[in-house]
């Protein structure tokens, strides 16, 4: 038992959860997006604690560098200044609380009551193992995932393109 490491874990976990709560309750979408950044960074910190170095780096690259930037783009493209407070947190409050309580009860009961055959592993690099498994045992999921990404990219470009009749330059200006 080393107390400082546990203390840092609880600090990072607290940051992650607090930022996640802020994402769900803040009325301003832009603030929610910034809170989401802290939540993603906190999860990356948790991966470091779990000695998943490759995944921590991927988390920062994909979520903070990719998805969050996309979200910010969407916030700026879909928001007039006055429309910043569309989200109304009082919507469906009782059903949300009920669903959340039941779900959390089931999940936490399972998490606490399941016995874990813990192997003491310490902090080892995992990147080489992940790369090897991706090229051997998990080759098919890897290739399927790459095809999925390609299809999603083409689909996203196609869907978000300006309409067929509209002139492109004018639409670009309107988008800004």
């Amino acid at each position: 038992m080393n107390a400082p490491a546990d203390l840092i874990f609880f600090a990072v976990a607290g940051l992650t959860v607090a930022a996640a709560v802020l994402v769900a309750i803040l009325p301003n979408i832009l603030y929610s997006a910034v809170a989401l950044l802290f939540s993603f960074a906190g999860v990356a910190g948790l991966y470091v604690f779990l000695s998943a170095d490759f995944l921590a780096a991927t988390q920062m690259l994909v979520y903070v560098g990719g998805i969050l930037v996309l979200v910010l783009f969407a916030v700026f493209l879909s928001n007039r200044i006055s429309g910043a407070k569309i989200g109304n947190p009082t919507h469906f409050r009782l059903p949300a609380a009920l669903i959340c309580l039941v779900l959390f009860g089931v999940l936490s009961y399972t998490a606490v009551s399941t016995p874990f055959a813990v192997k003491a592993s310490g902090y080892l690099p995992t990147t080489a193992d992940i790369g090897e498994l991706l090229m051997t045992r998990y080759l098919l999921p890897f290739e399927v995932a790459s095809v999925l990404l390609l299809a999603a990219l083409i689909g996203a470009a196609l869907v978000s393109r300006p309409e067929r009749g509209a002139p492109e330059a004018g639409d670009m200006e309107e988008g800004k």
Partner: peptide, 14 residues
């Protein structure tokens, strides 16, 4: 579980 439930609340409530 906490993170997942917060996500569920966000989806249902907002």
């Amino acid at each position: 579980a906490i993170l997942f439930c917060i996500g569920v609340v966000g989806v249902v409530m907002r």
